[in-house]
Structure formats: C-alpha cells, structure tokens
Computed example of a mutant assay.
Amino acid sequence: MVLSVLTVISHSEQLAKETVAKTEKFIVETLNIDASTLQSKQLSARALDYYFDTEDLDSVRDLVKSQCLKQDYDLVIQPVSTRQNKKLFIFDMDSTLIYQEVIELIAAYAGIEDRVAEITNRAMNGELDFNESLRERVGLLRGINSSTIWKELEDKIEITNGVRPLTTALHKLGCIMGVCSGGFIPLAEHIKNQLGLDYAYANRLGTDENNILNGETIGEIVNGDKKAELLLEIARRHNIQPRDAVAIGDGANDLKMMSVAGFGIAWNAKPKVQLQAPACLNTESLLDVLYIMGHTEEEINKLIE
C-alpha cells in the first residue's frame, strides 16, 4: 500500500461545496476508499488535500485524470513520500513560461503566422513529428531580417501568470531550474536571465552574413528526446535523482521529459497531452504548482516575499 495525497485545486477563487462533495464521492465510490479512513487538510480557499492508501497508484491516477478533465477544478495524485522532495524543475518555454509561441511571433514579420500556427498546433498535439514540423516552420521564415528581431521580441513576450513568484519560491526551496525549449536560444536565454534560472537550452536559427534567416536550424534539434536527455543530464550534474525532478510543459514534445522525471505536469495543455501526462494543471497561475507540492497559502506567501 502507498500513502497517497489527492489535491483538489479550483480554477476559481474558492472551492465550491459541490466540488468537494463530488470529489469525496469519487474517492469513496470510484476509488473504493473507506470514508472512515479518509483524512483531509485545507491548503487554501482554493486547494484541499485528501490522504488515503492506494494499492495501484498508476490505475488510480488514470481514474483521477478521467474524473477532472473538462471540469472547473484539477485533481492531482502522488505519493506522500516524494511530494516535497522535488529538487529539479525543467520547464518548457512557449505556452508554458510565456504565453506566446515565439516562432509565430517571428512569422508575423513575414505575414505567415497563420500558416506557422497551424503546423505548431498539430505538432504540439502530437499529430506531426516535431523535427519535421520544425524544419517546415523554420523554412517558412527564410528571408526575414533578424538584425533587431530578438530585442523586439523581448519586449513582446509575456511571462505567464504566477511564473515569477513560483521561481522565487523554488529558489528559496533550493531547487535547480532550467528551460528546455523547442523554440530559440536568444529568448530562452532572456527568460533564463529574467527568472534567474540555472539552465537554458533551445534551438538556433541559421542566418547569412547579413543576418537574414536562411530557413535552417544550426546543430542538434531540441525535440522531445533531447529535452528528456537534458533533464537527466542536469540531474546527474547536481546529483539529483530523476525521481526528484519535475517536468512542466504543454505539448506532445514535453511528454518524454515528463516520463523520465519523477513527476510531470501538463500546463493548460493540448487534450492529447493531458490524457498522457502524469498530472494536469489548468488554472490561471503556475504558482499553483506549490499546492501540488503541499504548501499552504500561508507558507506560499512567505516563500514569495
């Protein structure tokens, strides 16, 4: 038996009584947990923990996911023993640490953002091979002058709500953090510096002698396999066990790094990604990751000061 914790996180400012009642009914009737053994702890007005023993956590996780998808709350289950041992966080960048997809912002300079966005959406939903989709999208960027583009994009990108306080809190908790992006290194480095992350990895765009994009990438592509490889490499570098690592992203190319990490979180992800990810978070703030780690509102407020 594994002592597990199921965290309920509301998408609104307060957990509705109906949500609590529905969750407790689900735990008792679907997960077959004896109601008399169920223990709970309030983390905030929006988040609540339930503790109980499980025999097959993987099967329970599948049931939990099917219960909360398309609801106005999230359910996240994990072993109590590893909940607060999380020491390494690897984030995707586009649509995770920032709201935008950078390649679409670049494509806007040539008026082809709709064509690029369509390919991006299919790739992030796992309908296209990432390498092929990247080559196709980057090829469409050929001819764009990149002389001032990165500085201009730094002013356009918007960091996702909750990211700054989350990284502040994780710093205080002594966590190592990195961004592994299928996007591009100039902005990944910018985000790394903005948030004080330890690592930034992303793709590089080729240019000619006049800084005109040549429609190609330089070096190894940071795809799903590479993201997983980088997570494990960073863990080894800091003597962190993979089970104590967390991967957070929104696309199909993030699933591999979620699978090698001890814990994975699909952040407002594509539907197919949510079905395969270990956990899903569909709220308006990435700061809610701290609820998943078991912190109360009072503790969170102290961590983000």
Rank of each mutant, 00 (worst) to 15 (best):
Y291S: 05
N125K: 06
A108C: 07
M177L: 15
R237E: 04
S146D: 11
R135G: 08
I234W: 05
A107Y: 02
M293R: 01
L140F: 04
E297V: 00
N121M: 02
V116R: 01
D208H: 07
K272Q: 04
L6N: 09
N211S: 08
S12E: 14
N268I: 00
I119P: 15
K227D: 12
I218D: 15
L281P: 14
N145E: 11
C280A: 09
Y73M: 07
R243A: 02
I90A: 14
L255E: 12
E24K: 09
L75R: 02
A277Y: 03
I33C: 14
I90T: 03
V80R: 07
L75F: 01
A266E: 02
R243W: 05
I234H: 10
V116Q: 11
K227G: 11
V80F: 14
Q194A: 06
T296L: 13
S10A: 13
H11P: 14
A110E: 11
L231N: 04
S12K: 09
K256M: 07
C280Q: 08
L231V: 03
S285Y: 13
T217G: 04
P242G: 07
G143V: 04
M124L: 10
D129K: 12
R61D: 11
D198H: 14
V260Y: 10
D49T: 01
V64S: 13
D254K: 04
K227Y: 12
G126T: 00
T168I: 06
I90K: 11
Q276M: 06
M257K: 03
I33N: 06
N131S: 15
V20G: 15
G224I: 12
L141G: 02
A188R: 04
W267A: 02
K156T: 00
L105G: 12
L290Y: 07
Y99W: 07
N125S: 06
D225M: 01
F263T: 07
D53C: 02
T30N: 09
E55N: 15
F89N: 09
H171P: 13
A123E: 12
T167Q: 05
A277Q: 00
L281Q: 10
G183A: 08
A261Y: 08
Q84W: 00
S36A: 15
H190T: 04
Y73K: 01
G183D: 03
A123L: 06
Q42Y: 00
E233D: 12
L255Y: 08
A245W: 05
V116L: 10
N211E: 09
L141S: 06
S59R: 09
H11I: 03
L31Q: 03
D53S: 08
H171G: 10
Y201K: 11
N268R: 06
E220M: 13
A45H: 12
N211G: 01
R115W: 00
T217L: 00
L303W: 03
G219R: 00
E113H: 02
V28P: 03
T296H: 15
E233Q: 15
S285R: 08
I212V: 08
R83A: 10
D244H: 13
L31V: 05
G143D: 09
S10W: 02
L105T: 01
M257A: 15
Y50G: 01
F52A: 10
F52K: 07
K272C: 05
D94K: 01
E18N: 11
L15C: 04
E216L: 01
S40L: 02
L38C: 06
D250W: 01
